[in-house]
Amino acid sequence: MKVRKIQGSVTPYDDLVAVLDELHRVGPINSSILETLSLYRIFHPDTFSQLEERIISALGLFYKVLRPENLYSFLLSSIGEAHKSTYGEYLTPVQASVRRAVDNKQFISISAPTSAGKSYSIRDFIAEQNGDAVVIVPSRALIAEYINTMKERFNGDKGVMITSFVDAIFTNRDPRRIFVLTPERARDLFTTSAKLDIKVFFFDEAHVSEDRSRGVVFDVLVRRIQKAFPSAKLIFAHPFVDNPDAQFKKHNIPADNAYARSYTHGTVGKICVFQHSNSHC
């Protein structure tokens, strides 16, 4: 059993060096690597502490190693500093990859675990743009979460209106509008009398398009957006999808100005705890 093997290891340092080497070569591409690190952290904390800074650097968590104390971490920190210089934040490799994609392409469809931070990069991108923006979420329960996040990001900026409804209000101030809507509410975008200058649409949890009933509403919405806002950037984000480029094929989106990738990387270690009825286990 993996847990017992790690717990009883007599060469934990050498074992961790091998894990670090794999992490350096391929990154945290599966949960097995992260689980292994977590188990060594629990069962061999003293040994783990000797390599902890290198492991954190290899994971791409540059914001946690601001003052490297070894050559390996110092060299990798240059990547984090480059992200900081370009985007104003210490991004992980996945976040930086997502950000480059949304900067350079009109159509983006990505899949990544929740812990990878894809939505963070996209929200930051939206916040830094000019013009109106629309965030499409699958349920009303997520609307409040997104609105609170956006309000924190703009920190009371009166020139930005964040709303969960498509309303033609405050037209005399002409604020920048960020709408957080469900696919059903988003239909009001095409009937409002307000003059909207929508530059980007972000479809979070875009796998709702595979739902038998709501998927029809989602797909019709995407096609109406393409027709009404042909120059707008369309970003699709999924949690676990092997073929995020399916969005492009479904909606006849040209591949030459599109980017699709499925990221399997995670940044959070996961530990599975089992309770057995057999007291000897």
Rank of each mutant, 00 (worst) to 15 (best):
S209Q: 12
F274V: 14
R54F: 00
V65Q: 01
N172C: 02
F203T: 12
A133E: 08
G60I: 07
K250S: 01
F274R: 14
F218W: 15
E145I: 12
S231M: 07
P230G: 04
A101S: 11
H280N: 12
V268D: 05
L16P: 03
A127P: 03
N243E: 10
Y40L: 04
I169W: 12
Q247C: 08
E22H: 04
A260I: 12
L234I: 11
V134K: 03
E128K: 14
F74N: 01
S111H: 04
D132F: 07
P244C: 04
L221T: 12
S213K: 15
K105M: 09
Y259Q: 06
E210M: 13
F236D: 03
F179G: 01
S115G: 11
N30Y: 01
R100T: 03
T192I: 13
A206F: 13
G159L: 12
I6G: 05
M161A: 15
Y120F: 14
S77D: 00
K105I: 00
P113I: 06
A232L: 06
N257Y: 09
H276S: 15
K118W: 05
S109W: 06
A255N: 11
K2E: 15
N104V: 02
P254Q: 11
E145V: 12
K151I: 08
C281H: 13
V180P: 11
V166M: 13
Q129E: 10
D188C: 04
F203N: 06
S57M: 13
S9Y: 09
K158I: 14
I79H: 00
R99F: 09
E53Y: 05
N155Y: 15
P175C: 10
T264H: 14
H238C: 10
R67A: 02
F170D: 15
K195C: 04
